[in-house]
Design a protein around this nucleic acid. Sequence first.
DNA 1: CAGTTAATTAACGTTCTGGTTAAATAATAG
DNA 2: CTATTATTTAACCAGAACGTTAATTAACTG
Lengths: 141, 141
Amino acid sequence: MATDTLSLTFSALADPTRRAILARLADGEATVTELAEPFEISLPAISRHLKVLETSGLISRGRSAQWRTSRLEPAPLAEVNAYLETYRRFLGSSFDRLAEHLRRVQEESGHPLDDTHGDRTADTTRTTTPTRTTDTDEDER
Amino acid sequence: MATDTLSLTFSALADPTRRAILARLADGEATVTELAEPFEISLPAISRHLKVLETSGLISRGRSAQWRTSRLEPAPLAEVNAYLETYRRFLGSSFDRLAEHLRRVQEESGHPLDDTHGDRTADTTRTTTPTRTTDTDEDER
DNA sequence: CAGTTAATTAACGTTCTGGTTAAATAATAG
DNA sequence: CTATTATTTAACCAGAACGTTAATTAACTG
Protein backbone atom coordinates (compact mmCIF):
# COMPACT_ATOMS: atom_id res chain seq x y z
CA MET A 1 0.00 0.00 0.00
CA ALA A 2 1.16 3.56 -0.60
CA THR A 3 2.18 5.34 2.55
CA ASP A 4 1.34 8.98 1.88
CA THR A 5 -1.48 10.58 3.82
CA LEU A 6 -3.95 10.94 1.01
CA SER A 7 -3.54 7.34 -0.06
CA LEU A 8 -3.97 6.18 3.51
CA THR A 9 -7.06 8.31 3.92
CA PHE A 10 -8.66 7.27 0.67
CA SER A 11 -8.04 3.61 1.26
CA ALA A 12 -9.40 3.91 4.79
CA LEU A 13 -12.51 5.52 3.36
CA ALA A 14 -12.84 2.83 0.70
CA ASP A 15 -14.44 0.40 3.14
CA PRO A 16 -18.18 0.71 3.90
CA THR A 17 -17.76 -0.62 7.43
CA ARG A 18 -15.16 2.00 8.18
CA ARG A 19 -17.31 4.75 6.71
CA ALA A 20 -20.19 3.58 8.87
CA ILE A 21 -17.91 3.71 11.89
CA LEU A 22 -16.96 7.27 11.05
CA ALA A 23 -20.61 8.16 10.64
CA ARG A 24 -21.30 6.72 14.06
CA LEU A 25 -18.42 8.72 15.52
CA ALA A 26 -19.88 11.91 14.16
CA ASP A 27 -22.49 11.46 16.90
CA GLY A 28 -19.74 11.43 19.51
CA GLU A 29 -17.05 9.22 20.94
CA ALA A 30 -17.68 5.51 21.35
CA THR A 31 -16.02 2.37 22.63
CA VAL A 32 -15.00 -0.57 20.47
CA THR A 33 -17.94 -2.70 21.58
CA GLU A 34 -20.36 0.12 20.92
CA LEU A 35 -18.91 0.64 17.49
CA ALA A 36 -19.04 -3.08 16.77
CA GLU A 37 -22.66 -3.44 17.76
CA PRO A 38 -24.32 -2.72 14.37
CA PHE A 39 -22.08 -5.17 12.51
CA GLU A 40 -22.06 -8.90 12.19
CA ILE A 41 -18.33 -9.20 11.98
CA SER A 42 -16.12 -10.19 14.90
CA LEU A 43 -14.64 -7.82 17.43
CA PRO A 44 -11.07 -8.38 16.22
CA ALA A 45 -12.20 -7.35 12.76
CA ILE A 46 -13.61 -4.10 14.15
CA SER A 47 -10.46 -3.61 16.15
CA ARG A 48 -8.44 -3.76 12.97
CA HIS A 49 -10.76 -1.38 11.14
CA LEU A 50 -10.16 1.04 13.98
CA LYS A 51 -6.43 0.60 13.62
CA VAL A 52 -6.69 1.44 9.93
CA LEU A 53 -8.73 4.53 10.74
CA GLU A 54 -6.26 5.53 13.40
CA THR A 55 -3.26 5.02 11.14
CA SER A 56 -4.82 7.26 8.55
CA GLY A 57 -5.49 9.85 11.24
CA LEU A 58 -9.24 9.77 10.70
CA ILE A 59 -9.75 8.91 14.33
CA SER A 60 -7.76 9.30 17.51
CA ARG A 61 -8.07 7.00 20.46
CA GLY A 62 -8.02 7.33 24.18
CA ARG A 63 -8.63 5.15 27.19
CA SER A 64 -11.21 5.29 29.96
CA ALA A 65 -10.63 2.43 32.37
CA GLN A 66 -10.79 -0.73 30.28
CA TRP A 67 -12.51 1.01 27.41
CA ARG A 68 -10.81 2.43 24.37
CA THR A 69 -12.67 5.39 23.00
CA SER A 70 -12.48 6.60 19.44
CA ARG A 71 -12.96 10.14 18.27
CA LEU A 72 -13.37 11.54 14.80
CA GLU A 73 -10.49 13.76 13.68
CA PRO A 74 -11.04 16.43 11.05
CA ALA A 75 -7.58 16.72 9.50
CA PRO A 76 -7.67 13.89 6.95
CA LEU A 77 -11.17 14.79 5.81
CA ALA A 78 -10.04 18.36 5.46
CA GLU A 79 -7.16 17.15 3.35
CA VAL A 80 -9.54 15.24 1.10
CA ASN A 81 -11.55 18.40 0.85
CA ALA A 82 -8.43 20.32 -0.13
CA TYR A 83 -7.65 17.67 -2.70
CA LEU A 84 -11.09 18.10 -4.22
CA GLU A 85 -10.66 21.84 -4.29
CA THR A 86 -8.29 21.47 -7.20
CA TYR A 87 -10.88 19.66 -9.25
CA ARG A 88 -13.69 21.81 -8.01
CA ARG A 89 -12.05 24.76 -9.67
CA PHE A 90 -11.23 22.77 -12.75
CA LEU A 91 -14.56 21.11 -13.24
CA GLY A 92 -16.41 24.26 -12.42
CA SER A 93 -20.12 24.50 -12.11
CA SER A 94 -21.05 20.93 -12.94
CA PHE A 95 -19.07 19.76 -9.97
CA ASP A 96 -20.97 21.83 -7.44
CA ARG A 97 -24.31 21.28 -9.06
CA LEU A 98 -23.77 17.54 -8.99
CA ALA A 99 -22.56 17.63 -5.43
CA GLU A 100 -25.52 19.72 -4.40
CA HIS A 101 -27.89 17.32 -6.08
CA LEU A 102 -26.23 14.29 -4.52
CA ARG A 103 -26.34 15.94 -1.16
CA ARG A 104 -30.06 16.52 -1.47
CA VAL A 105 -30.73 12.97 -2.61
CA GLN A 106 -28.63 11.69 0.26
CA GLU A 107 -30.67 13.74 2.70
CA GLU A 108 -34.04 12.53 1.49
CA SER A 109 -33.41 8.87 2.15
CA GLY A 110 -33.12 8.59 5.88
CA HIS A 111 -30.68 9.79 8.51
CA PRO A 112 -27.88 11.65 6.71
CA LEU A 113 -25.05 10.25 8.80
CA ASP A 114 -26.18 6.68 9.23
CA ASP A 115 -25.20 5.02 6.02
CA THR A 116 -23.20 2.12 4.76
CA HIS A 117 -23.58 3.57 1.27
CA GLY A 118 -24.58 0.44 -0.52
CA ASP A 119 -26.62 2.39 -3.04
CA ARG A 120 -25.81 3.62 -6.53
CA THR A 121 -27.27 7.14 -6.61
CA ALA A 122 -27.78 6.58 -10.29
CA ASP A 123 -29.22 9.03 -12.81
CA THR A 124 -26.44 11.52 -12.22
CA THR A 125 -23.59 9.73 -13.93
CA ARG A 126 -22.48 11.19 -17.23
CA THR A 127 -25.41 13.53 -17.69
CA THR A 128 -23.42 16.67 -17.16
CA THR A 129 -20.66 16.88 -19.74
CA PRO A 130 -22.00 18.48 -22.89
CA THR A 131 -18.51 19.45 -24.10
CA ARG A 132 -17.64 16.63 -26.44
CA THR A 133 -14.31 16.94 -28.20
CA THR A 134 -12.83 13.94 -29.92
CA ASP A 135 -14.14 10.54 -29.13
CA THR A 136 -17.23 8.45 -29.44
CA ASP A 137 -17.73 7.44 -25.82
CA GLU A 138 -18.27 3.77 -26.58
CA ASP A 139 -17.11 0.94 -24.38
CA GLU A 140 -14.51 -1.51 -25.59
CA ARG A 141 -14.55 -5.26 -26.12
CA MET B 1 -13.70 -5.11 -2.77
CA ALA B 2 -17.00 -3.45 -1.96
CA THR B 3 -19.00 -2.65 -5.04
CA ASP B 4 -20.85 0.55 -4.16
CA THR B 5 -19.86 3.76 -5.92
CA LEU B 6 -18.23 5.53 -3.03
CA SER B 7 -16.08 2.54 -2.19
CA LEU B 8 -15.05 2.19 -5.81
CA THR B 9 -14.22 5.86 -6.02
CA PHE B 10 -12.27 6.00 -2.79
CA SER B 11 -10.27 2.93 -3.60
CA ALA B 12 -9.55 4.25 -7.08
CA LEU B 13 -8.31 7.47 -5.49
CA ALA B 14 -6.20 5.55 -2.98
CA ASP B 15 -3.44 4.99 -5.52
CA PRO B 16 -0.91 7.79 -6.19
CA THR B 17 -0.39 6.72 -9.79
CA ARG B 18 -4.09 6.93 -10.44
CA ARG B 19 -4.32 10.33 -8.77
CA ALA B 20 -1.45 11.54 -10.93
CA ILE B 21 -3.28 10.27 -13.99
CA LEU B 22 -6.37 12.19 -12.97
CA ALA B 23 -4.26 15.30 -12.43
CA ARG B 24 -2.84 14.90 -15.90
CA LEU B 25 -6.35 14.50 -17.31
CA ALA B 26 -7.39 17.76 -15.75
CA ASP B 27 -5.24 19.35 -18.44
CA GLY B 28 -7.28 17.61 -21.12
CA GLU B 29 -7.81 14.24 -22.74
CA ALA B 30 -4.85 11.97 -23.32
CA THR B 31 -3.98 8.61 -24.82
CA VAL B 32 -2.71 5.65 -22.84
CA THR B 33 0.89 6.09 -24.00
CA GLU B 34 0.78 9.77 -23.12
CA LEU B 35 -0.57 8.98 -19.71
CA ALA B 36 2.03 6.28 -19.19
CA GLU B 37 4.96 8.51 -20.13
CA PRO B 38 5.75 9.97 -16.65
CA PHE B 39 5.78 6.56 -14.98
CA GLU B 40 8.27 3.76 -14.84
CA ILE B 41 5.72 1.01 -14.74
CA SER B 42 4.71 -1.03 -17.76
CA LEU B 43 1.98 -0.13 -20.19
CA PRO B 44 -0.26 -3.01 -19.11
CA ALA B 45 -0.06 -1.69 -15.58
CA ILE B 46 -1.24 1.73 -16.75
CA SER B 47 -3.93 0.07 -18.80
CA ARG B 48 -5.25 -1.56 -15.68
CA HIS B 49 -5.11 1.64 -13.68
CA LEU B 50 -7.23 3.18 -16.39
CA LYS B 51 -9.68 0.34 -16.17
CA VAL B 52 -9.99 0.91 -12.43
CA LEU B 53 -10.59 4.60 -13.01
CA GLU B 54 -13.13 3.82 -15.68
CA THR B 55 -14.96 1.30 -13.51
CA SER B 56 -15.28 3.85 -10.76
CA GLY B 57 -16.59 6.36 -13.29
CA LEU B 58 -13.76 8.81 -12.66
CA ILE B 59 -12.87 8.71 -16.33
CA SER B 60 -14.67 7.83 -19.52
CA ARG B 61 -12.94 6.52 -22.59
CA GLY B 62 -13.28 6.95 -26.29
CA ARG B 63 -11.45 5.90 -29.40
CA SER B 64 -9.69 7.89 -32.10
CA ALA B 65 -8.25 5.52 -34.64
CA GLN B 66 -5.93 3.20 -32.72
CA TRP B 67 -5.77 5.52 -29.75
CA ARG B 68 -7.92 5.25 -26.68
CA THR B 69 -8.52 8.61 -25.10
CA SER B 70 -9.40 9.15 -21.48
CA ARG B 71 -11.41 12.02 -20.12
CA LEU B 72 -11.99 13.12 -16.56
CA GLU B 73 -15.57 12.74 -15.39
CA PRO B 74 -16.91 14.92 -12.59
CA ALA B 75 -19.63 12.71 -11.11
CA PRO B 76 -17.60 10.54 -8.70
CA LEU B 77 -15.60 13.50 -7.44
CA ALA B 78 -18.85 15.33 -6.93
CA GLU B 79 -20.09 12.37 -4.96
CA VAL B 80 -17.02 12.46 -2.76
CA ASN B 81 -17.67 16.12 -2.27
CA ALA B 82 -21.23 15.36 -1.27
CA TYR B 83 -19.96 12.73 1.13
CA LEU B 84 -17.70 15.29 2.76
CA GLU B 85 -20.56 17.74 3.04
CA THR B 86 -21.97 15.67 5.85
CA TYR B 87 -18.78 16.02 7.85
CA ARG B 88 -18.22 19.58 6.78
CA ARG B 89 -21.38 20.53 8.59
CA PHE B 90 -20.54 18.34 11.54
CA LEU B 91 -16.95 19.34 11.99
CA GLY B 92 -17.75 22.94 11.39
CA SER B 93 -15.16 25.65 11.18
CA SER B 94 -12.06 23.59 11.83
CA PHE B 95 -12.81 21.58 8.74
CA ASP B 96 -12.86 24.51 6.40
CA ARG B 97 -10.00 26.28 8.06
CA LEU B 98 -7.87 23.19 7.75
CA ALA B 99 -8.89 22.63 4.19
CA GLU B 100 -8.17 26.24 3.35
CA HIS B 101 -4.78 25.98 4.93
CA LEU B 102 -3.97 22.72 3.16
CA ARG B 103 -5.10 24.20 -0.10
CA ARG B 104 -2.75 27.12 0.33
CA VAL B 105 0.16 24.91 1.25
CA GLN B 106 -0.59 22.72 -1.72
CA GLU B 107 -0.55 25.76 -3.99
CA GLU B 108 2.78 27.07 -2.80
CA SER B 109 4.78 24.02 -3.74
CA GLY B 110 4.59 23.86 -7.49
CA HIS B 111 1.90 23.29 -10.05
CA PRO B 112 -1.37 22.65 -8.20
CA LEU B 113 -2.52 19.81 -10.42
CA ASP B 114 0.73 17.97 -10.93
CA ASP B 115 1.19 15.97 -7.78
CA THR B 116 1.65 12.44 -6.68
CA HIS B 117 1.07 13.60 -3.12
CA GLY B 118 3.96 11.85 -1.50
CA ASP B 119 4.19 14.43 1.25
CA ARG B 120 2.86 14.54 4.75
CA THR B 121 1.56 18.09 5.13
CA ALA B 122 2.40 17.81 8.78
CA ASP B 123 1.86 20.45 11.45
CA THR B 124 -1.89 20.41 10.92
CA THR B 125 -2.68 17.05 12.44
CA ARG B 126 -4.43 17.12 15.77
CA THR B 127 -3.90 20.81 16.49
CA THR B 128 -7.48 21.77 15.93
CA THR B 129 -9.75 19.98 18.38
CA PRO B 130 -9.94 21.88 21.64
CA THR B 131 -13.10 20.08 22.75
CA ARG B 132 -11.77 17.31 24.93
CA THR B 133 -14.35 15.16 26.61
CA THR B 134 -13.33 11.86 28.12
CA ASP B 135 -10.04 10.35 27.23
CA THR B 136 -6.36 10.99 27.54
CA ASP B 137 -5.34 10.85 23.89
CA GLU B 138 -2.38 8.57 24.46
CA ASP B 139 -1.30 5.89 22.04
CA GLU B 140 -1.48 2.26 23.00
CA ARG B 141 1.15 -0.43 23.42
C1' DC C 1 -1.99 -8.66 -47.45
C1' DA C 2 2.20 -7.77 -44.44
C1' DG C 3 3.95 -4.63 -41.23
C1' DT C 4 3.68 -1.14 -37.58
C1' DT C 5 1.75 1.18 -33.72
C1' DA C 6 -1.47 1.32 -29.74
C1' DA C 7 -3.57 -0.94 -26.30
C1' DT C 8 -5.49 -4.90 -23.97
C1' DT C 9 -5.69 -9.68 -22.24
C1' DA C 10 -3.50 -13.84 -20.33
C1' DA C 11 -0.79 -16.06 -17.06
C1' DC C 12 1.80 -15.68 -13.23
C1' DG C 13 3.97 -14.18 -8.59
C1' DT C 14 3.98 -11.28 -4.45
C1' DT C 15 1.97 -8.49 -1.23
C1' DC C 16 -2.07 -6.48 0.97
C1' DT C 17 -6.97 -6.93 2.89
C1' DG C 18 -10.34 -8.42 5.57
C1' DG C 19 -12.27 -12.00 7.74
C1' DT C 20 -11.96 -16.03 11.21
C1' DT C 21 -10.87 -18.38 15.97
C1' DA C 22 -7.83 -18.87 19.88
C1' DA C 23 -4.74 -16.83 22.97
C1' DA C 24 -2.83 -12.78 25.28
C1' DT C 25 -3.01 -8.29 27.50
C1' DA C 26 -5.19 -4.35 30.34
C1' DA C 27 -7.94 -2.70 33.79
C1' DT C 28 -11.53 -3.14 37.08
C1' DA C 29 -14.11 -5.80 40.77
C1' DG C 30 -14.49 -8.97 44.39
C1' DC D 1 -4.84 -13.10 44.14
C1' DT D 2 -8.82 -14.66 41.08
C1' DA D 3 -12.35 -13.56 38.10
C1' DT D 4 -14.63 -10.64 34.77
C1' DT D 5 -14.91 -7.40 31.07
C1' DA D 6 -12.86 -4.96 27.11
C1' DT D 7 -9.77 -5.06 23.61
C1' DT D 8 -5.79 -6.47 21.04
C1' DT D 9 -2.45 -9.75 19.02
C1' DA D 10 -1.25 -14.14 16.74
C1' DA D 11 -1.85 -17.46 13.34
C1' DC D 12 -4.18 -18.59 9.60
C1' DC D 13 -6.84 -18.41 5.10
C1' DA D 14 -9.24 -16.74 0.79
C1' DG D 15 -9.47 -13.37 -2.36
C1' DA D 16 -8.16 -8.88 -4.33
C1' DA D 17 -4.60 -5.64 -5.88
C1' DC D 18 -0.68 -4.55 -8.48
C1' DG D 19 3.27 -5.50 -10.78
C1' DT D 20 5.71 -8.30 -14.47
C1' DT D 21 6.46 -10.46 -19.43
C1' DA D 22 4.43 -12.72 -23.44
C1' DA D 23 0.76 -13.07 -26.50
C1' DT D 24 -3.35 -11.08 -28.65
C1' DT D 25 -6.47 -7.73 -30.62
C1' DA D 26 -7.52 -3.29 -33.13
C1' DA D 27 -6.71 0.02 -36.48
C1' DC D 28 -3.93 2.37 -39.58
C1' DT D 29 -0.06 2.37 -43.49
C1' DG D 30 2.35 0.99 -47.48
